[in-house]
Computed example of a mutant assay.
Amino acid sequence: MLWLNGFYNFRIVGQYLNVFIDGMLTTIWLSLLCLVMSFFFGIFIALMRMSTLGFVWRIAAAYIQLIRSTPLLIQIYLIYYGLPALLPFGNIFDETQTAIIALTIHTTPYMGEIIRTGIQSVDKGQKEGAQAVGLNSFQSMYYIILPQAIANITPPLIGQTAILIKDTALFSIIAVPELMGAGLTMFSETVVATESYVTTGICYLLIYLLTLILSGYAQNRLGGTAWRSN
């Protein structure tokens, strides 16, 4: 234990435990909000990409390529520093709001492509069967196609969620008090790099494990729904 205590000072970490707990809670609710918003907008992007109207799917495709070809860090800077220069009334968003907007804009194209793949993986007979019993296109999509699509895309959705959680670390550059910011605060005040960043990494691992547990539960529920639909 002496060698471990020499490598990792638990006493110093204990002094910043509340800072890391607050950072974890901030990271969790920011990630959850951005996940829900990007998933919601991703459905519309997926439907636009599948549209038979040329100008509709081209707009969606251009948005996807534009966002996916630029780093999230640049997008955060553009929204935080560039947007106020374009608006006549200055910056109307604080740091946290800017972070939410940037991460949602960045994640939506990835969600859209995942959802589109899931929708296309559902057998066409499901849609034909829904129409045969009198459901319109919206009802078919909402009650039949999307539940099965979501069950099919759970693995890539988990992967994208993990990426989203890790991307929140970039919020620290605009002083959002999330988990990475907690680690930077501890390091700046104590100058102990190992304890600061190992603790930050452990906290991210705990959040990821929580995500796996919740996603496994959701997959079982959605999997049952999809099975009953068949």
Rank of each mutant, 00 (worst) to 15 (best):
P88K: 07
I76C: 12
G134C: 05
L72A: 09
I207W: 11
L47Y: 08
Y143V: 04
I115W: 04
A102G: 10
R221M: 15
A182P: 10
I59S: 11
Q75A: 02
G125Y: 00
T52K: 12
T161Q: 03
G224H: 13
I207K: 04
Y143R: 13
L212H: 13
L87K: 05
Y204L: 13
F171D: 05
L209A: 15
L210M: 13
L146N: 03
P88S: 04
E113G: 03
L210W: 09
F40C: 08
F44P: 07
S229M: 08
L103A: 05
I12Y: 09
S69A: 08
G216L: 10
Y81H: 12
F138N: 13
A162P: 06
R58G: 06
I100A: 06
M50N: 12
I92N: 07
Q120F: 02
Y8D: 04
R68P: 05
P71I: 04
S215H: 10
I144E: 00
I173C: 02
R228F: 11
C203M: 14
C203I: 13
E178R: 11
Q120I: 01
Y81P: 05
S31T: 14
M186D: 01
T168P: 08
I76E: 06
I150L: 14
Q148D: 06
F55L: 08
T26H: 08
T194L: 14
R221K: 14
I43E: 04
I145E: 01
R116C: 09
P71C: 11
L209S: 13
S229W: 01
I114A: 01
N9V: 06
S196N: 08
V133Y: 00
A46Q: 06
V133K: 00
S172H: 08
G14C: 03
S51K: 03
I79W: 11
T185R: 12
E195C: 02
I45R: 00
I67Y: 00
R221Q: 13
T211D: 03
I67P: 00
T211N: 04
A62C: 09
I76F: 08
E95T: 08
D22Q: 12
T26R: 07
N152S: 15
S140Y: 01
R68M: 01
G82E: 09
A218N: 13
I101C: 12
I114E: 05
L78T: 04
F41C: 10
F138V: 14
T52M: 04
I43K: 05
L35R: 03
L205G: 11
I119L: 12
T199H: 13
V36K: 03
E189T: 15
L87F: 11
S38K: 02
I207Q: 08
Q139A: 03
T161V: 02
V192S: 07
F44C: 07
I114L: 03
R228I: 10
G42W: 00
L17F: 13
L47I: 08
W227E: 13
R58L: 15
A85K: 13
M186R: 05
L78A: 14
I100L: 14
